[in-house]
Amino acid sequence: MASGGKHIIPFNVYIKVLLALLALTVVTVLVAQVHFGAFNTVIAMLIASIKAGLVLAIFMHLKYDDKLYVVWFGSAVFFLVVLWLFCWTDFYTRVFQGPIL
């Protein structure tokens, strides 16, 4: 008896998601052994984000829930990126003036 708006995700979907998450973990570990230089970080973050997306969408029911939560959670990530972006802009456009101390 599911009262209005509560979506029940089938059991085997949960299992499939876990298998996908485990597979992606293996992929992350394998990719890390290969050297792509700076791209290693990018690839690792990309795979982590796919995993995070799966957890959010299925385990945390975001896919079937109020879209407000998606916007709200997304805004947290967005402002985090803002924090990083401006700090990064500062760090990488500073003119190095030689050792001060």
Binding site: T28, N40, A44, A48, V55
Partner: peptide
């Protein structure tokens, strides 16, 4: 509580490659 627990998992998903692999 489940949502909180998944968030803890979510953070670890990022911590693992950042600290151990990259």
């Amino acid at each position: 509580v489940g949502l909180f627990w998944h968030l803890v998992d979510l953070i670890w998903i990022y911590l693992f490659p950042l600290l151990y692999l990259v």
